[in-house]
């Protein structure tokens, strides 16, 4: 396990300098929307706010590969000096380590979500300059001051642009905007996860397909009690799903949150959850980028809810 303060100081310095925990310029890694047809910046009723989480996965994977080698070695203590290197340099180094396949995969999920929203005739817009990392990792790690400072900046920017409604795509950002921002910044937005807006009735295209097993992320299952939303979408599409014993409110954590301070602990928790899901003997579907990346690491056949639903409801335009 790393010294948590070394990790927190490094992440906090990155957030201060680049507004995200990786020290990478947003224009460098928030690229999923480029070249997407039907893309609208304004007008629109609700802002699609990705919180940069799907885009971050290639960077998280690259960081974890590096930390895994470092954990427990005599070099682990050197992390504390990392914050002395300018964020832009740290970020550039990290960018080199990310995998192109990862970037394509996770950007593709956001593009699918965009198509699904359009297909459901949701009135939304996307503006990359209004899409920020929520700061949730700083909150989770206990850096309250760093989180509040960043959250206030994000909330103020959205308010300045007259944003009142946001559509989110992951549980961590949803929790931050729905629960933490009103409490710590005084700013309230109408927050809805994308799957609650999908219209699938009358399009029972999944009939006869083999069932999938669901992995509920902790934040949707317990903190926000939103597990029913994805199930409704699957039912409306006629797709069968099976439940593991620890699901919904009582879902088991995949271990993702431990990644930044102890990749070894992450592996231990992940192994246990992977065994529970494996016992269901069906492909796994989840709706959180952190869970998705983590379960993929365990070698499970797993895909994102958006990818599955997209195949039936909004196939990619050729």
């Amino acid at each position: 396990m790393f010294n948590p303060t070394d990790i927190i100081d490094l992440l906090a310095a990155n957030v201060r300098q680049t507004r995200n925990p990786f020290g990478v310029r947003p224009s460098r890694f928030n690229t999923w929307w480029r070249g997407l047809s039907g893309f609208t910046r304004r007008p629109g009723d609700a802002l699609l706010f990705t919180g940069l989480m799907y885009q971050a996965i290639p960077y998280i994977n690259a960081t974890t590969r590096y930390l895994e080698r470092l954990e427990g070695s005599s070099w682990a203590g050197c992390l504390r000096w990392g914050r002395l290197v300018p964020a832009s340099l740290r970020g550039r180094g990290l960018s080199v380590l990310t995998s192109g396949a990862d970037r394509k995969k996770f950007n593709g999920i956001l593009q699918t979500i965009c198509r699904l929203l359009r297909q459901s005739e949701v009135n939304f817009f996307y503006h990359p300059e209004m899409d920020f990392y929520s700061g949730i990792l700083l909150y989770d790690l206990g850096d309250q001051d760093g989180f509040v400072r960043h959250a206030r900046f994000v909330a103020r920017t959205l308010q300045l642009h007259g944003v009142r409604k946001v559509i989110t795509v992951d549980p961590h950002t949803t929790y931050a905007l729905k629960e933490l921002y009103p409490r710590y910044t005084g700013a309230s937005f109408e927050v809805q996860p994308y799957f609650s807006l999908l219209q699938c009735r009358g399009s029972e295209r999944g009939n006869g397909k083999p069932p999938v097993v669901l992995h509920d992320p902790c934040f949707y299952g317990r903190y926000l009690e939103l597990s029913e939303g994805p199930r409704r979408v699957l039912r409306d599409l006629g797709l069968e799903y099976v439940e593991v014993r620890n699901c919904g409110e009582f879902t088991s954590c995949c271990g993702g949150p431990a990644e930044s301070v102890s990749p070894a602990l992450n592996r231990e928790i992940l192994g246990r959850r992977a065994a529970e899901l494996k016992a269901a003997a069906a492909p796994v579907v989840t709706f959180c980028p952190i869970c998705l990346a983590n379960l993929l690491k365990a070698g499970l056949p797993v895909e994102d809810l958006a990818s599955l639903v997209g195949r039936y409801l909004a196939p990619e335009e050729k």
Binding site: N3, P4, D140, E249, C253, P257
Partner: peptide, 15 residues
């Protein structure tokens, strides 16, 4: 103190 950062903030205990 270091053990506090083992917590996954999964919320099962709170639930």
């Amino acid at each position: 103190a270091q053990d506090l950062w083992r917590c996954l903030h999964c919320g099962l205990c709170t639930r």
